[in-house]
Design a protein around this nucleic acid. Sequence first.
DNA 1: GGGATTTGACCAAA
DNA 2: TTTGGTCAAATCCC
Length: 305
Amino acid sequence: MSWNTKKAIEELVRGKELTKQLRDLLTKSLTDDGFVNSEDLVLKICDTFANTLSLLTNSNTTTPTAVPDYYYNDDLNDFSQKPTINITSDGRKSEDSGDSIKSPPSTHRDRRGSYKRRKCVDSRKKITSALVDDGYAWRKYGQKQILNANHPRSYFRCTHKTDQGCQATKQVQKLEDDPPKYETIYYGHHTCKNMLKPCHFMVDDSTYNDSSILLSFANNSTLTNKQGNDNPFFSSVKQESKEDYKQISEITYNGSSSSEYLLSPHHHQLSTFDLSSADMTVLSPDHDVLSDVVDSVDLDDLLQF
DNA sequence: GGGATTTGACCAAA
DNA sequence: TTTGGTCAAATCCC
């Protein structure tokens, strides 16, 4: 068993425990403290699954030092004090190591990092007819004319790469002029606090009410609402036919196609993201809450699970 | 002045 | 050797 596989298992175990804690939180009467804790737990859970995906997609990496210890530290309460993340999807030397904070003068070109070409890593491809704001702050770090391409490819990284060590990147390339067609490929996962955006609806004071939101991973693990009852809405919406959903975009996830579905306007209670290996279902009987979700959550954010 | 963008150079995979 | 991905100085913009 490779080192990454072992660590992936550790991450999954940790995610399981955190999910249990979140479940317990949601089944209790929430206090103000409860909101803070649940938000923290959601952040940890998102982080855990993102880490696991990174580890599994780099299972051939055998360099233990590629992942800092804090990833496996139970005390993750203060994300602002995390050191910059050195986990890399392509094995490239991190630019955020301590000695690279002060950039060497241009005359010391031998001290530049090694720029390994991206191999098979966690990626999601989107084809859109326009450049759309995906809700994250990106910083352009390069542009390149690609062979047999009519337009240059632009390279973006998360704005929070330096301050939070977020390793998410994306490439945008215009494929056609008329009609305009853009291909966006996302690499890695956001570990910055921006990733709270899609999850925030679950714990936000203004939207959290008795109508709990259910998260369903795969088929048989569901959360109950905070009264401890199985939500009858869940069973009812599970019977909705796929024809009621509006497919909003075609996504390629690590090379295999999967579809995302949103409910048609008269069924705002359900949003299902059907991935290749597991279903993630976000449920809410609260129309307004999920409307906010649909409006504010970028699909790619949810794919981070 | 600080953050974002541009662009040529650098580097390694193919 | 070619090509794609990234770096980092120069430049732009608010």
